[in-house]
């Protein structure tokens, strides 16, 4: 279907691809934020699903980065905008809506850096990585601002529905998290499962000593 459309879309194929990839990136990033915030929540509904939600968060984040890459790279083939690689990689330098596009470039690079830093946690340090990872939410919001400011489909109903349906719950969860003040507190660098094991070990040691 896409192949047939691509043939008839002719010179617009790169532009359509970029727009579609941008929208997909927006939806996936919102879902990734929802999954990420659910990992941290202490909700009973997710008990036992922690590993699955974590895997989903990781998969959604990687899919988001892939969509962001397609969104930017597809524009290189568009002969109307005809941006250079520098226009697409350096913020606030392009000719097309430099401010909003610049915000999108900042958000894209930051999401990539913060997302991929997950695989370098051992060298960054778990505590530092956790505090850095919280900024992901800020760049997600910047991505939404970019889509509304420079998105061609920003005024379309279908686009607004695709934006609000996943981003609404993400925003609610984010505000709840901020309201609880978890962002202000220092989080233990030791995972909760390790704490549980350690607590269980201490309890058994104590019982052995007492007996």
């Amino acid at each position: 279907m896409i192949a047939a459309g691509a043939v008839s879309a002719g010179p617009h194929v790169f532009w359509i691809t970029s727009r579609a990839a941008g929208t997909v990136a927006l939806v996936l990033s919102s879902l990734a934020v929802v999954a990420g915030l659910l990992i941290g929540s202490r909700g009973g509904a997710l008990k036992g699903l922690g590993g699955d939600v974590k895997a989903l968060h990781e998969a959604l984040s990687l899919a988001t980065l892939a969509a962001v890459a397609v969104h930017g790279l597809a524009l290189l083939g568009d002969h109307y905008l005809h941006p250079s690689i520098l226009d697409l990689s350096i913020p606030f330098t392009g000719a097309y809506r430099p401010f909003w596009t610049g915000i999108g470039i900042v958000a894209g690079w930051s999401l990539a850096a913060l997302g991929l830093s997950y695989y370098a946690r051992s060298s960054i340090g778990q505590a530092r990585w956790r505090s850095l990872h919280r900024f992901t939410a800020l760049f997600w919001v910047l991505g939404i601002a970019h889509s509304l400011g420079s998105g061609t489909d920003a005024g379309r109903l279908w686009f607004l529905v695709m934006l609000v349906v996943p981003a609404g719950p993400a925003l609610v969860l984010l505000l709840r998290r901020l309201g609880r003040g978890r962002y202000g507190k220092t989080v233990s660098p030791v995972p909760s499962s390790t704490i549980e094991i350690a607590t269980a070990g201490q309890a058994s040691a104590a019982s052995r000593i007492s007996s």
Binding site: M1, G5, A21, A67
Partner: peptide, 21 residues
């Protein structure tokens, strides 16, 4: 989960591409 996410993302891309086209 990874496979399903990748398939879902591709399906979503196809739908949005078709809508824009």
């Amino acid at each position: 989960i990874r496979r399903r996410t990748a398939r879902g993302a591709l399906a979503l891309f196809a739908v949005v591409w078709t809508v824009v086209f």
